[in-house]
Design a protein around this nucleic acid. Structure first.
Lengths: 346, 346
DNA sequence: TTGTAAGCGTTATCAA
DNA sequence: TTGATAACGCTTACAA
């Protein structure tokens, strides 16, 4: 591997001159500049990353930690954040915790497991001397296991952190739930069932709040019997639809598209036509929402926006002199996507 | 930041002793070992990654370059490769080229665009001194733009490289196409249409070869009029189904599930029942394959296997003394997933 | 405009 | 079992 010293010898200049030229410093004659760049090209010189960073104070690098790249929400957030970092001329370093791959579903409520894989990664990014970190959670919740002595500028995407130690960017679930119910009522529905996610999940709770606000606005009393809790997968959508069958509902809000898929199965089995006999809205705007028939009206998650917001927030933190931690939670709105799963009543 | 020197002073030993202990070298007394680790804990010492790697000869790091993390095939390959690297105690560094995000579909056949984003990344991993690289392509093809002077041990996943400069792990598309047709003939079908992918695509060509082998085996003459070329998306599946409508086919093999989704749309429109009036098999085993009704019989891509094979191959290359480049192409078989989209004839 | 020389924090070598 | 000391390749004062 050719070094600065060797380049210097080749060009009959000193190493510092070469270094200055390589780093675009002023005060070099055009002639030597060209000579050096010529030599760089000829030799295929690559600066030694480690030597360079050892000397530098700032690496101008942001680390993006993903809990789970396989989670559908992760990649859009990550890519948008990367794009934003690049625009501001920060390098990005991606770390993938592979939580799902390692622990299946069991890590969701087991912070010890998370901690055991997070801790070495945190050490690593600290020894890499990144300027800041964006933590992209695999599912929304309150994360409790960040070590007390961790003080890198950090923004959390798709979840929050205990005690609001770091700013976080999350879905506006309350508004999302509100929007879906409001859409159904605007189409004339008043007997509206809800297939919620897991009962203790933060998305579930927030969206339910939004649903209740919408119902209240429309002077529809909230009927707890019309809400059943699933666990986000297709099968649980099917089961939940069955549970709601006796309630004579005209519409159901399913808190994700996968469970809505289960409702389609149940409806087909019962000879019920979605979009006619029964109206249905989902959530997430997964690919299946477009492929099922009729297409599901749903809510597109603002994943790119979350990624951009997270990166922007972090970069602005890095830019400001005062490293005061702002306890801020930014909620980003989703977007109603109208397809054909809802009938207009009356 | 606390350094080795400071630790040494604290423990009344020399920096080299501290270093030896930190790196688990033998020949240290238990007493000093404990003293040093104690100090590490107390101070929260983090080794300086850059200083360490500058001095080391091998970083025991493998770089995984993804053309496109957003591509459905990428993450499973990448995560499996990561797991394999970890098992062999290699660190992994993920790079995401974000080709789709940057260029939409236009980069597919524009190697200049690829090169413009690849080239700096290649420089970077060379200056990071990784031991080897796994390149995870976003779509199957022959990649032509690796620079001549690039000599890092490399394995290509999901694509191949011009002149077979590097070993590659790809889908066994020929067998995949063969399997799907054989399944249809085993169910009694003989009038089988094919909705292929883009005509110049390597997956398309290989699978078509497999289809022809299967037809030949079954003594069914290959009828070019029963093959139409789509461009992998739902809409093109719809159009292709329409084109094939007059041919009185009993079955269609669609080269991906998304196009099969388009066939469902067409069939529904025409009052044709999939799995009864018309049989259909897809490819890829995307999530929609399970959600459409009836579920699509399809072929599950061996993505994890590709990731594992790529990592294993690279690691074995790194292990062997002779760095002779093996021009090897490993084809990994997919797996038939049977659902309900195919009727048994006769 | 260019050169000299001193680090950066670690690991490797060799001697004690 | 431990300790001096010399790298590693680069950047950066400061001197010329």
């Amino acid at each position: 591997m050719v070094t600065v010293k060797e380049l210097a010898k080749m060009c009959d200049v000193s190493p510092s001159t070469v270094s200055n030229i390589l780093n675009g410093k002023p005060n070099v004659s055009e002639k030597t500049r060209q000579r050096v760049w010529q030599a760089v090209k000829e030799t295929g010189y690559q600066p030694n990353y480690y030597a360079a960073n050892m000397r530098k104070q700032s690496t101008r690098t942001i680390s993006i930690i993903a809990e789970d790249l396989g989670q559908f929400s992760t990649t859009p957030i990550l890519e948008a954040a990367m794009a934003c970092c690049e625009e501001h001329e920060y390098r990005t370093v991606i770390m993938n915790l592979r939580l799902y791959d390692k622990w299946r579903d069991t890590w969701y409520y087991d912070e010890k497991k998370l901690q055991s894989t997070l801790s070495p990664v945190l050490n690593e990014i600290q020894s890499i001397k990144v300027d800041g970190m964006i933590y992209v959670a695999g599912h929304g919740r309150v994360i409790k296991c960040f070590p007390e002595n961790f003080h890198l500028p950090t923004v959390i995407a798709y979840a929050t952190v205990e005690n609001d130690r770091f700013p976080s960017i999350v879905l506006n679930d309350e508004k999302g739930g509100y929007d879906m119910i409001k859409y159904l009522t605007s189409m004339g529905h008043r007997r509206i069932g809800i297939i919620a996610g897991a009962a203790d999940n933060t998305h579930t709770k927030e969206r339910l709040l939004g649903c209740q606000r919408a119902l209240f606005e429309e002077a529809i009393p909230y009927n707890p019997e019309w809400t059943v809790y699933g666990d986000w997968d297709k099968e649980s959508g099917y089961r939940s639809a069955k549970k709601l069958a006796s309630q004579k509902l005209t519409a159901i809000y399913c808190m994700n598209d996968l469970m809505a898929g289960g409702v389609y199965d149940y409806a087909r089995e019962q000879g019920i036509t979605i979009g006619k006999d029964l109206s249905l809205v989902g959530y997430d705007n997964r690919q299946i929402a477009e492929y099922l028939y009729p297409g599901i009206t749903t809510n597109e998650l603002p994943l790119k926006e979350i990624g951009i917001a997270a990166a922007s927030k972090l970069i602005s933190m890095l830019g400001s002199e005062e490293q005061e931690t702002v306890h801020e939670m930014i909620r980003v709105d989703g977007k109603l996507i109208i397809r054909n799963s809802v009938a207009k009543l009356g």
